[in-house]
Amino acid sequence: MPKLISKDAVLDNPWTVMKASTGPEILQAVPGKNFIVPLQFWTLYSEELNDYDGSIAVWIDSDESPEKIADALHSLPLIALNFPVFSDGRSYTNARELRQRYAYKGEIRAIGDVLRDQLYYMAQCGFDSFEIRHDQEAELCLEAFKDFKTGYQSTIAEPTPLFRRR
């Protein structure tokens, strides 16, 4: 099971990320799971998903926009944002868009190439949980959220910029 952490703890991970290439037959084959499905899967197979007996969340790739799912966002308990490679910064903006533009209140999860040294910035941009890459040590990763005591900006985690606090 992929390792999952929040900002202060190692978590159980009841969710399974469905690969991008998966077809709808999996819903028949594996009943009762909690799937995080690709955005495209969610668009193509909405009926099949409605009939499915497990929980469903959606993951959005870095080159996709949350706009495509805007109307349904509030029925989803969790949105995962993918980092195909850790140096692709688009999912930081997508996380902020989810919170700021769409007022999404559910859980935002980082998936993909999620590494210790980017966790602090992810948390600032509105991510709540982090499915860290298999070789990352969970205990070490938890330290990352203490990298900085404060920052200058207005972020999702700290909406008041430093100039209004100092």
């Binding site: 692709d88 930081y92 910035y121 941009c125 200058y152 100039f163």
Partner: peptide, 17 residues
């Protein structure tokens, strides 16, 4: 200076294209 502070460690813009 205002821009320096805003841009330093900006969490959203550390991995630009």
């Amino acid at each position: 200076e205002i821009i320096r502070q805003w841009s330093s460690f900006h969490p959203e813009f550390a991995y630009l294209p």
